[in-house]
Write a protein that binds this DNA or RNA. Sequence first.
DNA 1: TTGTTACTATTTTTT
DNA 2: ATAGTAACAA
Length: 802
Amino acid sequence: MGPMLYLVGMATSRKHSANKSTIEAAGTAVAKRSISERALGQPDPGHDTGYLDELNVEQRAAVEALDGPVLVLAGAGTGKTRVLTTRIAHILSTGRARPYEILAVTFTNKAAREMKQRVGQLIGGAVEGMTWLGTFHAICVKVLRRHAELVDLKSGFTILDTDDQIRLLKQLIAAENLDPKRWPARQFAGLIDSWKNRGLRPDQVPAGEAASFANGRGKELYSAYQTRLKELNAADFGDLLLESLRLFQQNPDVLAIYQKRFRYMLVDEYQDTNVAQYLWLRLLAQGSANVACVGDDDQSIYGWRGAEVDNILRFEKDFPGARVFRVEQNYRSSGHILAAASGLIAHNRGRLGKSLFTAIGDGERVGVESHWDDEAEARAIAERIEELRAAGHALNEIAILVRASFQMRAFEDRFVTLGLPYRVIGGPRFYERAEIRDATAYFEITLNPANDLKFERIANTPKRGLGQASLQKIQRHAKARGIPIYFAAREIIETDELGPRQRRTLADLIATFERWRALIDDLPHTELAELILDESGLTAMWQRDKSPQAHSRLENLKELVRFMEAFESLAGFMEHVSLVMSAESESDGDRVSLMTLHAAKGLEFDTVFLPGWEEGLFPHQRALDESGLAGLEEERRLAYVGLTRARRRAQVCFAQNRRVHALWQSAIASRFVDELPEDHVEVVEGPGGGGGGNFGGYATSRFANAGHGFGGSHHTPGWQRAQRHQKSAKTGGPRSSPTIEGELVAAGDVSSTRFGAGERVVHQKFGEGTIVEVDGNKLLIAFDGGSNKRVVASFVQPAGSA
DNA sequence: TTGTTACTATTTTTT
DNA sequence: ATAGTAACAA
């Protein structure tokens, strides 16, 4: 069905007659396109603009509109980054600006890196001159370091990470004699963050909101927090933006410098900007007004952390004379997938409207399938993956996108038992891991003893008998003398304030730091780092640790030192650490990717599995409760993002029963499932097609629709239902028999293993255990953690073999 | 000061 | 269920 150029998606927006014309325009685009494309295909005489030939008409128009405000609405897979990078190349090659006169902002370091690299491909070494290409935060830091004194900071200010922030807030809450249980620091951190996202300083917070925390003392507390930050010469992430905004607002002369400097401005993912970023940008754009924002309102999925879709919807009003370009040819997905995604997103009301089309052809329809529960779901998907692999598909081209990270467990369990290589994307970032934070805290104090929060972090890590009692004494002394804790500690060891034992350990610690500090200039920084890791006892601490992750933590520490080699000095490295909170390294091997939908934005795969499309989970109940219709629409955009990640195959599924927390709940299909346009969907119906051998019970756990599921086929005993009613069950089936039918796969590789029953082994995820039974290449292991699992032999190692 | 037990919250996540 | 945290006891 369908013409070569497949047209999909209706621009659905109540407003703008413009959208109507979009539909019509899209209708005629097929014919017009090829003609105008040919017409424009001729190289523009005069300039060396070969890079423009790579673009289609729409992209090219967006690139060539250099003057004045421009909004580029670039749908999923339409070459958004290409437009941005080519635009930069165009500005440079037409001599409109020098590299350092272009401001290009992204949200993530990854995006910044990619942009830099791709601009480099277009224009060569000149990218190095693009000093103002980076994340909002990185650019703000750069500005703030130059003018720190104007916002009550010193140029060497430190950037607080989340841990530091929480620790500080805890202290403040305690100082105000508030019940830390009733007023958790975490929650307050979130509140402050949301204020900062909206560009609100303490005096600007609406009274009602400020009163909502700490018995109405929220505002005072926020204010106290800011004061404390200045005392510590520190800024949190929100401050980077907020303070540079204040800098511009309160110092017109400084603002003028940057307005003049940035002749051209480009913003990536504009739909993700928050109010503070918007205000910041608008101030700067009042200079040259050559601001180009690229984004897709349909992919705005970060509303919950302050992003304002409104920014993109309002663009034409905010930037008078703005021109809007739509880039609508999708180069990623085949027809049915794109059509399904477009049909789904058409249910949203507040959107600018786009009609994506693809020339790739119809391809496969989007599969819709239901399963009995989350385990059956994982089993079925893993099975499909095995099939794809057997058919020659690379695992790297397969992804499973979930709504919430707890869903990953079922898949991980399944993959581990099958021995299917997978990788989890997202999760705790490298620099957020405890061992890395501890290590960097030691580095930081060596460089900068005045960093109180870091000192507090490691004073008793590893445990050295300096508990909170001692720490409090030091803190009190520091406060009384008005000096940083480190120096207070150095003074207090001269007194009898502490017990003799604590006094000695503290003196030791301080002396060690002094010794390290003396070595900064004499020792290569990586060697110093290794020395610090050893002498601090951190290495020993993890070597002693018997938990299954201890080994990987040690690996991480080694990785950290390796990572440092890329920097010139310890100080250079530390500056980097505070801003670049990611260091992905493991991209090796052919693996299935497992991640949240949020983490998937910007990625693409041949095959995408979208499990868990159930009411309450997706759309998530909380999104609905907290944000109503807006929340629902954001969830729908998330579904849209998920579908549009797929190039050739997308498989949606939902479970009829899902364990939420501890108890089983019956689930109903997500409304999004029924919003998919029927013509582009392939429903896997009923148990009829099953009968896959002896394991029919699992192979046939596919029902057309939940709700009507006559789930009681031969292999679905009543215990599930029983479970639902009497949620007492201690040994729910899943736990005690995790992998009854592990035989389904891995049958090809039954070579005996080097293991025997009774041997001690280590598993990366489950820790140590004893082999109970050997069955081909699969081992039944009683893990010390108390669980019995069946695991493929290649996933374990003999215990004790480092 | 450290280790134990009780209690609670549990979407998404960058900088 | 479970993990992370906070109060409590040794």
